[in-house]
């Protein structure tokens, strides 16, 4: 809450609109599309929300890879529902970004020409069915950990989109946990497959929280603007703390020999993360970067006739209606 003391902090040199923005942020209130906002705030949000939207859309690919080969009709139906959700999440987020003054077309163009970033986690391949479990449990789990605080992001449309997304993500994480649990209760080969998937996805999932706090240049400003609520390292710690008991239930081993609870700090000690790999994947040299963008571009171009037909149909219908009204 804003107390008179807080208000006195506001710089007297600020213009009326700057002061109003500062007051709203200080009061932990929300900024809405028609409010005045600093250019840097708008730019940061456009970048973050569009990258987030792109991640949802590109994230459909590693999973849709397994729809035709899901081990049962039930699993196929679940996977299709999940991939459909990812498309929905992308659309909620594109809509939120559009309220800031960027068009859908611009964002799509940035994505398919390789100028936009998306979560580097989706540049890893999904060679086995157990990867569907590991993605749900670890990747969606990390995403939820990141996204729950974003429901309170200071930009109203972003927060509202995140509320819908978080509700739906919890199904994603649970179904992933269940896939791995069933494999762990299966044959030796199935258990091995589950463990192998966890080994491959664990570190990339921890990297999803972003670089360590002392190397995260934009974090402080995002936190000052109430877009970000917790630091990268805080969220990463929280996530590991949740994973450990879940891994025990499942019977998988988390691939970090130095992972142990520290009684003094009340947190888990862990190995150093290999950030060189993260940087490589981020720079576009991950295992599947080129493939993901190529498929996204093809889907966009191959779908052009559908968009054109819908547009043309709408135009003709409107014309006919107009002609009917005149006659």
């Amino acid at each position: 809450m804003t107390s008179p003391a807080d208000l006195s902090v506001v710089d007297p040199e600020l213009s009326a609109e700057e002061a109003r923005f500062a007051d709203l942020i200080a009061a932990d209130s929300r900024i809405e599309p028609r409010d005045w906002m600093p250019d840097a705030y708008r730019k940061t949000l456009i970048r973050q929300i569009s990258q987030h939207a792109h991640s949802e859309i590109i994230g459909m690919q590693p999973e849709s890879n397994w729809i035709t080969r899901a081990p049962s009709l039930k699993r196929k139906a679940i996977l299709m529902a999940k991939v459909q959700d990812e498309a929905g999440h992308g659309l909620y987020l594109y809509s939120a970004a559009q309220t800031l003054g960027i068009t859908r077309e611009e964002m799509m163009d940035q994505l398919i020409t390789g100028r936009a970033r998306y979560s580097s986690i989706f540049n890893y391949p999904t060679p086995t069915w157990a990867d569907m479990g590991a993605i749900g449990w670890l990747v969606d789990g990390a995403a939820i950990c990141n996204q729950v605080p974003l429901c309170r992001a200071s930009y109203g449309p972003y927060g509202r989109a995140m509320v819908r997304i978080c509700k739906e993500e919890s199904f994603h994480q649970r179904q992933g946990f269940e896939i791995l649990l069933e494999l762990m209760q299966g044959t030796d080969a199935q258990r091995q497959m589950a463990q192998d998937a966890v080994n491959r996805w664990y570190w990339p999932a921890l990297q999803m929280f972003g670089p360590p706090d002392d190397q995260s240049p934009n974090s402080a400003q995002s936190m000052a603007w109430n877009i970000k609520r917790f630091s990268n390292d805080e969220l990463r710690q929280r996530f590991v703390g949740m994973l450990v008991p879940q891994a025990e239930v499942m019977g998988v081993t988390l691939p970090d020999p130095n992972l142990r609870f520290n009684e003094e700090t009340g947190e888990y000690d862990m190995s150093e993360i290999d950030w060189t790999e993260f940087e490589e994947v981020l720079a576009g040299r991950g295992p599947a970067n080129a493939e993901r963008i190529r498929r996204r571009r093809e889907a966009h171009e191959d779908g052009a006739w559908v968009r054109e037909a819908a547009h043309e149909y709408a135009r003709k219908q409107a014309e006919r209606e107009l002609a009917g009204a005149v006659a």
Partner: peptide, 10 residues
């Protein structure tokens, strides 16, 4: 209306 930009196709 926010998002109602002249350049949006739809």
């Amino acid at each position: 209306t926010p998002g109602e930009i002249g350049t949006e196709a739809w």
